[in-house]
Design a protein around this nucleic acid. Structure first.
Lengths: 153, 153
DNA sequence: CTTCATAATGAATAAATATTCGATTTTTCT
DNA sequence: AGAAAAATCGAATATTTATTCATTATGAAG
């Protein structure tokens, strides 16, 4: 049996390329391709992927992948803190948090004085992070992940 | 009992303005507002409206009105809300508002969970909006206009 | 005013989907 | 390595949503 990561990728691909109208249908496609799982797991996978059953203009049901899925740094610790997602736009990084958490988490980031982070501003559930010049997205991601994990302890 | 057309309009409005996460919940809102119907009829109404239960970036369920059926009207109401101007700088959008309004309007934008908008932060009369990569200024403008119109009524 | 067709609806039910629970595996921490 | 924490997953179940079936309302044509 193949692993979860492959399965998740495959599910996304199938939903992008086919008109899938129920989990049962998707399940049988998965089984045909060597993935062995139950409807319960599929339901959970779809939830992770934020894929949901929507209505087409023709009034038919279809499972659709949302326009933008969120590349997320998702260690359990980070999630515990209320961090929902980390995504880049231009040279800025944006963290979405649980409502009301942005200020607190931003101040954790500020106080870490990490050399990759120039500064942050926070709204209610959004933190905008301004990286220092010369740092890659990967470096920023690592730095933020580390800060958030450390602040847990 | 009110008629079908009114009911359909009302359902659409409720779904635009509230976080409705199940038909039962919506049903009780409808009953509170004098609409008497059963879940069966509601299910059919939602299908007519192409409103479906989707997952928010936070992983919660919400009934959402699809973009394509949003009404397209223009600026007068938007002004009422205290929005002064929308202008771009680099890949960021900035909205200037009446003094004190920025936080409230920003939270409308955040709660819309529009796929074109990554997040916002607000001061007193200024909202900085970070668009998702891959969206044009025109798309961002349209998205924001829609969000603000919807929140008006 | 009937008659026929169509739409609207609720009750009951079917179908589809989400979650709980317990068992197992994997990961993390020391 | 070994303990503790967390993730994964299936079976069963709960919950939610769609549809069927029967009934009543609505409306058009004779």
């Amino acid at each position: 049996m193949k692993n979860k990561t492959d399965r998740i990728k495959f599910i996304r691909q199938v939903c992008l390329e086919n008109n899938v109208s129920s989990q049962e249908e998707l399940l049988s496609i998965l089984k045909d391709n060597g993935f062995n799982l139950t409807q319960a797991t599929l339901s959970r996978d779809l939830k992770r992927l934020k894929i949901s059953k929507t209505l087409t203009p023709q009034g038919l049901y279809r499972y659709v992948v949302p326009l933008s899925t969120f590349p997320v740094s998702h260690t359990p610790e980070v999630r515990k803190m209320g961090v929902g997602s980390l995504e880049f736009s231009g040279h800025l990084a944006v963290i979405k948090t649980k409502s009301g958490y942005a200020g607190g988490i931003a101040s954790e980031i500020d106080s870490s004085a990490n050399s990759a982070i120039l500064g942050t501003v926070a709204g209610d559930d959004t933190i905008i992070i301004v990286p220092r010049e010369g740092f890659s997205r990967e470096e920023i991601t690592k730095a933020l992940t580390k800060i958030l994990e450390e602040s847990e302890h």
